[in-house]
Simulated assay, not measured.
Amino acid sequence: MSAEVSDDPLVRVDITRTKDQEFTAFVRDAGPYLYKTALFLSGDPHRAEELVQATFERSYRSWHKARDGEPRAYARRILLNLRIDGWRRSRGEVVSDVVPVGSIAGPDDGVAVRDEVMRALSLLPVSQRRVVVLRHLLDLTEEQTARELGIALGTVKSANARGIARLREIFEEGAR
């Protein structure tokens, strides 16, 4: 990638960044987003860190492809594939129902809310959890979700509807 820098319109200076510099900037920008995604998909902070590290490693190896398109979407797809592979290897896995809350400083702190959402998500079947996370926590469209997961649009719609209905039940039960 190169950037043009000049105060004089007649002078053109190209500054070329190396692959490592480009990737380092990408890691800095996309890291928090990918970690949040991994945390919602795995329910475990340590597993989320492992997923993000594996995602960065794979993204770096194919950086020439990733940087030509949407690097964040490319990395998200890698992360999702890694998580799906993990689900396949450990069918029946129970997502940790303990998310470290830390100290809750006050009513504006969203940690308690995140904890409640994580616990509710952990109760969903894996197929519904994947769709709900992509649709509502990552704000992907139904079509994007179907493409990311490699499933039919109708499957996304039904899994989303069932997942949201189940989450409502879980939150209503908790409110009692």
Rank of each mutant, 00 (worst) to 15 (best):
S2M: 06
S2D: 02
E4K: 13
S6N: 09
S6D: 07
S6H: 09
D7K: 01
P9T: 14
L10F: 12
V11D: 13
D20K: 00
T24E: 15
A25T: 10
A25S: 15
P32A: 11
T37N: 03
L41C: 04
A48M: 02
L51K: 04
V52G: 01
R58F: 02
A66I: 12
E70H: 12
R72D: 00
A75G: 11
R77V: 04
I78T: 03
I78E: 00
L82G: 11
I84A: 07
G86L: 08
G86W: 10
W87R: 12
R91Y: 10
R91D: 05
G92Q: 13
V94I: 13
V98G: 01
P100R: 10
P100S: 10
V101T: 12
S103P: 00
I104G: 01
G106V: 01
D108T: 12
D108W: 07
D109Y: 05
V111S: 12
A112H: 14
E116F: 07
M118W: 11
L124I: 06
L124N: 04
L124T: 03
P125L: 09
R129I: 01
R129V: 00
R130V: 01
V132D: 05
V133H: 13
R135C: 10
H136N: 05
H136K: 02
E142N: 09
E143I: 12
I151H: 01
A152F: 05
G154Q: 08
G154K: 03
A159M: 14
N160P: 00
A161W: 03
E169S: 13
F171T: 11
F171W: 06
E173F: 04
E173Y: 02
G174P: 01
G174M: 11
G174A: 09
A175R: 13
